[in-house]
Amino acid sequence: MDKPRTDEDQQLVARTQSGDPGAFDQLVVKYTPRLYGLVYNMTSNHEDTNDLLQDVFSKAYKAIRGFRGKSSFYTWVHSIAVNMTLNFLKKRGRRFQLSLDDVDASIQNDKEFLELTATSSPVREADLSELQRRLNEAMMKLSDEHRAVVTMFHIQGMPHAEISKILRVSEGTVRSRLFYANRQLQNYLDEFRKNPVA
């Protein structure tokens, strides 16, 4: 995933701080899809994602005057989103209901999807929607912190350095969490492969 241009963001932030609400609207439009993916894959619930995303931008708008530009707006708003989502998940606990979005038709043109289904692999034999559901269940079995790094690295495509800035942990911690999370996901999906009917 390409990192947004920071100079354009800096201009929009400066305009927002000067009192131009239209500038912040442009930031909202720009970052909503990206932040939606982040929050959705951490919560696996569309309704919760919508509410959280509204709160994230509301908080960002109130706090933007204090934004000094030490980090990029991209990192800053992602930090807000991750922290608010983690706090929400702690309060929600285990009482959650999966509310998954549908897979967009564009997946049919995805190169990796085509490669995955073309080769002889467990994925080819399994129904994709069922596999998606299993994968989401496996994701929810991870701890909130492990799920966050999996979402940011594998799904959002962020580098380790960026994730470490957002979570305010070392890169080593990010790598170890990813390693542990991958093992957990593998174990769970292997169980599904061996016992498809659960």
């Binding site: 993916g37 897979v103 564009s106 997946i107 995955l116 994968l135 996901l185």
Partner: peptide, 18 residues
Amino acid sequence: FDDNEIATLLRLKRHEQP
């Protein structure tokens, strides 16, 4: 499922859209 397949499956989650 090896690491690459896990990573690929996770990347395909980008196609889950509202």
